[in-house]
């Protein structure tokens, strides 16, 4: 069968180039593309629905609040307390942000306000490469470089001099712990945070800065009193977006964080973040009742936290970036 308009002849060519035919093709492509554009929306909803459906069996028998605040994780006895994992995720992410945000902020201010054109051009591929390095490689680097450093140098040193302070007093001697995970994570999210902050800072109208500089302020004063106040909502949103990236990072953290299900009390303690819990246990041990449902609930908790961070910061960033044009 030959489709009308597709004969390989002079007539066919004429038909193909007729206005009516072109409009028909255009309309058809429009409808097809519309179907394609449903896919992301459908996927986003379907993933959420599927996860809720899969975690439903355990939510029926164990109240969600009880699981969120339960401290004991013993699937064999039917005890599914997520608090150690949530706490582990929170500790690693917060320490990582604490380490990453000041240098990232300073670097992005430096790039947008001080750096020469050639330095900026040098920084771009550098950040791209840093962002492109796979998380497993970061994990390898963490186990080779960071863990021994913490085990042999940093922890003994701190233990000797500041041993009694809260949050750093620990008897975990392995070096695998929250601080190792946080250092690796901080370097992983740094290129991302710098890129977002740089975009926000360079979006501040040049006239504002010039007006301030014309008053005789130094560059730093302009940054402090003009740029930062103007960019603050965007900066916060950028950091929250970085946090949402850090929360979901699996492999690199899993390899250096120790993976012990306990409530951490110190940055040197081992922890067990939610993504590591899923990666280590999912796909195995399905014989224990409700285990897979519990892991799906863990994934759902993680996803909900990430989506809240992600959506609010994305919307805030859109708002901020559109306002300044």
């Amino acid at each position: 069968m030959k489709l009308p308009g597709f004969e390989n002849s002079r007539e066919g060519w004429k038909q193909r180039s007729s206005l009516e035919f072109r409009h028909r093709i255009d309309k058809f492509a429009g409808r097809l593309f519309f179907v394609f554009s449903i896919i992301p929306v459908f996927l986003a909803i379907a993933i959420l629905v599927m996860m809720i459906y899969k975690s439903w069996p355990i939510m029926k028998t164990h109240p969600l609040w009880q699981m969120l605040t339960g401290q004991v994780w013993k699937p064999d006895d039917g005890l599914f307390g997520f608090l150690p994992f949530i706490a582990g995720t929170a500790w690693v992410t917060l320490v990582a942000l604490f380490l990453a945000v000041p240098p990232c902020l300073l670097t992005s201010i430096f790039l947008s306000e001080y750096a020469s054109h050639s330095l900026r051009a040098f920084m771009k591929p550098l950040l791209d490469i840093l962002a492109a390095i796979p998380s497993v490689v970061y994990g390898v680097w963490g186990t080779i470089a960071i863990v021994p450093f913490i085990q042999n140098k940093l922890q003994p040193f701190i233990h000797q001099h500041l041993g009694t302070l809260p949050f750093i007093n620990s008897n975990n001697p392995t070096g695998f712990g929250i601080l190792s995970g946080a250092i690796v994570l901080a370097i992983m999210v740094a290129p991302f945070i710098i890129a977002v902050l740089y975009e926000i800072l360079s979006n501040i109208p040049e006239g504002l800065k010039e007006a301030s500089l014309a008053m005789g302020t130094t560059r730093l004063q302009t940054v402090r009193w003009v740029v930062i106040p103007q960019a603050l909502p965007g900066i916060i949103a950028g950091i929250v977006l970085g946090a949402s990236r850090a929360l979901g990072e699996t492999m690199a953290v899993l390899m250096v964080v120790g993976n012990v299900a306990q409530m951490p009390h110190s940055i040197f303690d081992a922890a067990y973040p939610l993504p590591a819990l899923i990666a280590n246990n999912y796909g195995e041990m399905m014989s224990i009742p409700l285990y897979d449902s519990a892991l799906m609930t863990a994934a759902l908790i993680l996803l909900v936290i990430i989506l809240i961070f992600n959506i609010t910061s994305t919307l805030a960033l859109q708002h901020v970036l559109e306002r300044n044009i």
Partner: peptide, 16 residues
């Protein structure tokens, strides 16, 4: 929706 999907961690994609 694309931003939401972009934010979903890869471990969740693996589980899904």
């Amino acid at each position: 929706a694309l931003d939401v999907l972009w934010g979903i961690p890869s471990i969740v994609y693996g589980a899904i």
